[in-house]
Each structure stands twice: as C-alpha cells, then as structure tokens.
Design a protein around this nucleic acid. Structure first.
Lengths: 342, 342
DNA sequence: CTGAAAGCGCTTACAG
DNA sequence: CTGAAAGCGCTTACAG
C-alpha cells in the first residue's frame, strides 16, 4: 500500500485504474485485463469493471500505458506540406487506414526542409513511435542514419524504392513524367518545355522522365528546362507561363510539374487572350479538383495519393503487428488524363 | 538498486537517464535537472551530463516525462477538414506559434462530424492534453460537457463567442456575410442568391449575414437561398451555378459560401459562355489563391485563417503558462476583396 | 549545488 | 480465471 491519498488520482484529478478496481472489487491487474483483453476474464468480472469505468468516467492514461507496455501506439507521419492538396489526401488515407486501430498519429510538416525533417524526427523519437511514415526516398545523411539505427518499421511514400531494403508505396514519378511527355510528343508537339518549382525529389524525378522521353525522341534541349526552388503556387504558374512565352517563343507545349502551376498558366493565357492549346499546349500533374472543370480542361496525370496514404499505413500496421509484408514495394500506378489543354 | 540489467534500458533498447547519470558520475535527479533546468546545476556538472547525453545518444522518454511531471506537453487540435485550404492555413499558424515551445500537437480531422469530434476528443483525452484548440463554438452536448468538466484551457477558432465564458479567436462570420452582401447591394444587384454547402456553423452564420442585409434592404426572399449539406467542392459549385441559372432565372448575383464553389461557378459560366458579371455576378468567401487570378477575378472576403491559428495557439500557450489572457475574444477582422466578378 | 526516496498510472511474466 | 509484486523512465518536494 504505497498510495498516500487513496480514492483520488492526484496527478490529473482523474480516476485511475486502481480506483476502478477498488470499486469493482477486483485487483488492478484484473481490471487492466478486463479492459485490454476482456476474453481473459469472466463475464461477471468484466461487467463489474465496466460498470465501475462508467461510474467513474475512467479514461486510461496513455503515458502510463506506453511506459508500462513499452509500446507507444504512436505512428509518426512526416509530410512536406499541408498547403499541397496531394499531401492532405495522403493524410486522409493514412487516417482512414489507422482509424480502427488504436494507433495515434503524430503529424509533422517538414515544409520541404531537410533541417525541419530532422528536427521533427528527433522530437518524435521522444515518443518512441512504433512506426514511421515519410515522403520520399532521399533524406539528409542525419535522417538516413537515424532511420537506420531505429528498430521500428519505416515506409516511404509517393515514389518507389530502387532497392528492396527500403519499404515504399507509391508510383514511379519517372515513368509518369515520361508518359505525360510521350503523350505530348504523340500529339505532335516538339518544343516541349518543362517547368519545375519547389524542386523536391518528386519534381526532379518527373523532370528526369521528361528529359528521358525528349532524348529518346531526339528533341531534348536543355534550354527548354525552367527550374525554380520557389514554392509551387497558382500565382507562380502565371508568372512562369509569362516567362515561357517571353524566353521560349518557339515552345509549343509546357509540362508543369504541378497542376497549381498549370492552373496559373491557363489563367494567364485566358487573361492575355492566348489560345490554349492553339498557341501553346499546357499540361500539369496530379489532377487537382479544378483541372477537369477549367477552360480549357487540363491534361494531367492523376495520382493515387489517397491510396498511397492508405496502403502505406496498412503496410506499416502489418509490419508493426509482426506480419510479413506481401510486398516491400507497392506500385499504385497513375492515370494519364488527356483533356482539352493539349 | 532495483534495476536488474544495468547498463541497458530494456524497454526500447535506448539509453535511459539513469545511464546518462551513471556515465556522468552524478545522480539521476541531477542529470534530470541538468537537462530541464540547466541553470540549477554547476557548469562542470552540466558539461559532464551533456557529454554523456551525446555519447549515449540519449533521447528522453516523453511518456515517462508526462507521467512523472503530470504534464503531457500535448495540445489537442481539432479541425473539420484537411481538404479545405482554410484549415490547413489555420494549422500552419498553430504549428508556427507552437514551434518554439516544447508542446506537441495532436491533430484530428473531424470531417465536419459531431460524432467524430466526440470520438477524437475522447481519444485525445487519454493523452491528458494541457490545452485544446477547436473550430467553432457549437458542439454536441456530449462534447460541450466534456469540455466543461475538463480543467484545461480551450480556445475556439474561426468565429467569435457571444459570451466571454468561452475563449475565441477569429472574426465575425455574420458581419462578413453582411459586408459582402452589402457590397453586392451597393453595386446595384437586387436578386442576390445565397448558395451554401456543407452547412457547418460558419456557413450558417454567413447565411445569417446575407439574410440580415437582404432584409434590411427590403429584398429578402427565402427562395433565393440554396442550401445543401454536400461537401463544398469546385465541381459542386459548377452544378449549383447551373441550378441557380435554371431555378432562379431572375437572380442577378450569387453569394457562394466558399471560394471553391465560386470557382466552379465561374468555370461553368466560362464554358457555357455566360458573361460574369454581365449576365450574373459571382462572389465567394475566403480568397483562395486562384481567386485573384481567374477570369474574371473573384470578389470575395479575405479571411485571416493563418493568424487565427497563430493567435489561438499563442493565447492557449499563455493560458497554459498561467498568464492572464489580454483578451478572451480576439477579433482578427476580415477584408472585402472587390474584383471583376461583381 | 546535489542526492535519496517516493511516486506518476499503468502492464507483465509468474504463480496459483 | 485472478492476484502480488516489480518495474517502465522519468520528476518532484524535501533535505542538506
């Protein structure tokens, strides 16, 4: 009997499991079992405990559970952005997949910064997560070594790993970039510019795809490449379209690395009275909700971001549960949406 | 000496504070102090502890900290949606405000559902949060009573409380709805429709504002109100615009409760060759990034959502720290953006 | 400036 | 099916 003031949890003023047990007339550990693995106790006991829980409004203390069980039931999730609709969809998928489980999500926004990613990971490690979900395959050396020494499963999202040493769920950004470029080539466009912003690894892989397809067609020209590290926004898209028209007057098509840029480009053309695709074709990436509705509707690549989140979280949950994963690399593919803008 | 296997924390395989202390040649509690309140220990001791921390790669265990200190350092944040750019901006503001502190965010998406809100709150209560941030003022009776019995500060975001019993940071949705409607009236529009989707409390308050302004002008007509609980999307906006044109042929302006709806409406008009505002004016709410760029540019209300998040989190942090709040109700205002669409 | 001891609220082999 | 005891990894008055 070590408790000093019986009858009241003193930390938070909330009922403790000990009080539940006392009220139910059982031991603390039986009360614990009645709640965590009810099939291990008799019906009568379970009923008594449940009644006591209700009466006291008992809420288990997660910190104590985590400490005692050495299981945090926490999954750390890192995304590069929340303003990018792609990653909010990924989060939706993760949340839905985790919904039924008792896992709690720790969601961090890295703002596309290696330094912030490292800082967040370091912070989340304090919570001793049972698993980690993060975007992409390339990380700073610090982050890479933290992930290696960790003993918990890590699943990379959005692109596919080259080596099976890393678990990944996504689709080939390279193939998608090639597919869109080939579509443009097939339509007869020859001077196809690539416009990239943010320059995260996904954008760079899409650029690789464009480069490869252009090279295959014997049409690659370094000058057709416009890259800026500025965040991808609709306004930037309008500005970059202006730049394409001014600096690359013979360009007959533009592959924007993201739909929001392409939206801005189309708005600029609407306003300037430049016919799309008559004067110049425009294509984007990700198929955001407005893309199919604007005038002209936007040719783009539909990406399975919700599914990426859902499947990545499901895979992680399996790994945490000790199940062998069906695959270490889940390719969810992509869909080319050919529309009016090309 | 109760530890069975000295030299290794056995739970997670990670170094413990005890090992740090041993390596540094001090007591556990001195090691603890050296890390949490370094000014309380001598320089020499601090240096020894810091060296040991580095050598062992010590990461404090948050669960143990929370349990021992009865302070979770957790803030629970509830938002109704992540697909709505308004709330991702709110989250950005919250994250920035909390950045420097040691507080950790537990972010939950209620999907505009009272039931999910209650479930999330119940789950987050297990983590014994030091404070809570949530959208809006109206909640289910269950949630309201949970919030009341809680002993932690709660700050409501996005709208302003009528009574000072509740802390709130936002702006008057009612006033904003009135201001936009009056702008339309001032422009000479008379048959101004209101189109609301999702029907969350903010939309309903904006509708109240429209109703009030129309009544004042002697122009209120119930039939001008189109309300649907369906989620607000660009596609829905296009469909609702079609409906307005068909069902309310004499409407000369439409106030959409959200910019995404208004975007869809404008896309529909572009495609159908309907002049905006020539045939009908269109206004939105929130000033999303595309609004100033599309053709015509969209008249709307610019809302301080990032600031709402930032200020709400700052206020909460003050309250947690025991400081008396400068105000229990922070009005951040709104800005009417008059553009081409009206 | 530093330490011994108790305790936060749970869970987990181990018995019976 | 149920319980006594130890322990998870920290922090906190209280001494000195």
């Amino acid at each position: 009997m070590s408790r000093s003031r019986a009858g009241k949890g003193r930390g938070t003023g909330r009922a403790t499991l000990e009080e539940v047990a006392r009220l139910a007339g059982v031991s603390t550990m039986t009360a614990s079992r009645a709640l965590s693995r009810p099939q291990l106790v008799s019906d009568a006991t379970r009923a008594k405990v449940e009644r006591a829980v209700l009466e006291l409004g008992y809420v288990p203390n997660r910190a104590a559970q985590a400490l005692a069980s050495r299981q945090s039931h926490v999954i750390a999730v890192l995304v590069p952005s929340l303003s990018n609709a792609v990653f909010t969809a990924v989060l939706d998928g993760i949340q839905d997949a985790v919904e039924a489980s008792h896992y709690q999500l720790l969601i961090g926004n890295t703002h596309y910064s290696d330094a912030e990613e490292e800082k967040l990971l370091r912070t989340y490690l304090q919570s001793d997560p049972d698993g980690i979900l993060l975007p992409g395959l390339s990380h700073s050396p610090e982050v890479a070594s933290m992930l290696e020494t960790l003993r918990v499963p890590v699943v990379a999202m959005m692109d596919l790993a080259e080596t099976p040493s890393m678990l990944s769920v996504g689709f080939s950004q390279l193939d998608a970039g090639m597919a869109l470029t080939r579509h443009l080539l097939g339509k007869g466009y020859r001077r196809i510019a690539f416009v990239g912003a943010q320059l995260d690894e996904r954008t760079l892989r899409r650029a690789d795809g464009w480069r490869q397809a252009m090279t295959e067609a014997g049409l690659f020209d370094q000058r057709l490449e416009i890259m800026t590290p500025a965040p991808s926004t609709v306004a930037l898209g309008a500005a970059l379209m202006r730049r394409v028209l001014a600096e690359l007057p013979d360009a007959d098509a533009v592959f924007f690395c993201n739909d929001d840029l392409a939206h801005g480009a189309i708005f600029h053309c609407q306003r300037a009275g430049i016919p799309v695709p008559g004067r110049i074709a425009v294509a984007g990436f990700n198929d955001l909700p407005a893309s199919s509705l604007m005038l002209p509707s936007l040719t783009t690549v539909d990406t399975p971001r919700y599914q990426v989140g859902y499947q990545a979280a499901s895979l992680l949950l399996d790994l945490i549960a000790g199940k062998a994963p069906a695959a270490r690399r889940i390719d969810l593919g992509f869909t080319l949406r050919e529309r009016e803008s090309t």
